[in-house]
Computed example of a mutant assay.
Amino acid sequence: APAPLLNSTSPRPRRRAPPLPGRKQRPRSARRGRSPGPCNSTAAKSVPPRKTSSPELMATPAGSHPASPPAIPGKAAVAACAAMAVSYVAVLYAPTLLLRLPPATSLRAFFHRRFVCAAVSSAASVLATAALLGVWSLSDSSKALAVFGIRSDHLLEAVVVPLLLTSLVYAGSFVARLWAMSSSCGTDDDGVGVSCTEKLARWMQTSLQDVMVWRNYVVAPFTEELVFRACMIPLLLCGGFKMYNIIFLSPIFFSLAHLNHLFELHQQGCNFMRSLLIVGVQLGYTVIFGWYAAFLFIRTGNLVSPIVAHILCNMMGLPVFSSQRTRGLTSLAFLAGSVSFFCLLFPATSPKLYNARLDGCSCWHGYCRWS
């Protein structure tokens, strides 16, 4: 017997309309509102590799797309980054609070302990990131290191170009320091005649023996960039966060790692309001530098770029805007350098300068869509 007809009040079965001719259907990840990142995108797998006559271009970590690590929840990525930031600071106090070691007898011994603690914390962050992202599944060690931005290709560009770009901000500082050096060159601190070369050699010898130089120019830049850029940014990328959100929000973890300075200044007998003002200025400076360092790491895909910028910023401090000795020359140099910096920011950090092959994507991690 034929099936009874549906009356007008009964619900009709819904049928999915066929796609319009010439219209591409979006993937499910895009329909759900999640951006196709390096960990959940299938575009790189579906697009066949380009044919090239030089097989060496295909062998670089940036050119070849390794197997994407598994996607992780965004909350898990944020929690992992927060745990790394807290552990980076907390482990500095482990020798006295956890291990019950006696206080250091000298400043050198104190910082030697902190150097070891920073190295242990950085290694733990790298291992945790590798476990969360499944880096161990990569067949080649160079591809696994490339996830953290540790690469040997395009090393000269990754060092020279960001260093020159960052130097533009300190154009006024360079003019003021060169002016002061030229006026004091030929005499030492006691007024005794000495050549500029000999004075520079003395300064270098003294700096190599200074533990604060090793802290500010070696240990801090390498360990902080390894944890707060090389570990956190890939985690946030695989958590589905947008590029701009990562650049502007990831320095929050970097600035939180400097809150211990408030406790240390208070222990040294500094007034609380004065300590709060000093730490506030430091936090503002670290946030701005964190934006720039994250931008460099994402654009170049090389960990060396934010490291050299970090070293230069630690050496120069805050930019010098003006100086009475130079009669306005410092202000003019600062203005010209700042304008040049912002004009060259995107061209000097173009991913094409630091990668052999992009596969239609302008980012080393297979995620970025910037041109």
Results as ranks from 00 to 15, higher is better:
Cys117Arg: 09
Ser87Asn: 12
Ala123Tyr: 09
Tyr88Phe: 14
Val86Pro: 02
Val116Ser: 05
Val126Gln: 01
Ser121Met: 03
Tyr93Asn: 09
Arg100Glu: 13
Phe115Met: 09
Ala80Asn: 02
Cys117Met: 15
Ala109Ile: 05
Ala90Gln: 03
Gly134Phe: 11
Ala90Glu: 07
Cys81Leu: 02
Leu98Trp: 13
Ala104Ile: 02
Ala94Phe: 10
Ser106Asp: 15
Ala90Lys: 01
Arg113Phe: 11
Ala79Glu: 09
Arg113Ala: 12
Leu97Phe: 10
Phe115Trp: 06
Arg108Pro: 04
Ala83Lys: 04
Ser122Gln: 14
Ala80Asp: 01
Val91Asn: 08
Ala119Tyr: 03
Leu92Asn: 11
Ala124Phe: 10
Ala118Trp: 03
Val116Ala: 14
Ala94Ser: 10
Thr129Lys: 01
Leu98Arg: 05
Cys117Ile: 06
Leu132Arg: 08
Gly134His: 14
Phe110Gly: 06
Val78Met: 11
Leu101Thr: 11
Pro103Lys: 15
Val116Glu: 01
Leu132Met: 15
Pro95Lys: 04
Tyr88Ala: 14
Ala94Gln: 11
Val120Arg: 04
Val120Trp: 00
Ala85Cys: 06
Arg108Gln: 15
Phe110Pro: 05
Tyr93Gln: 13
Tyr88Lys: 07
Ala80Gln: 00
Ala109Arg: 09
Leu132Ile: 09
Leu99Val: 11
Ala109Lys: 07
Leu99Pro: 00
Leu98Thr: 08
Pro95Ala: 00
Ala79Ile: 10
Ser122Lys: 03
Ser122Cys: 14
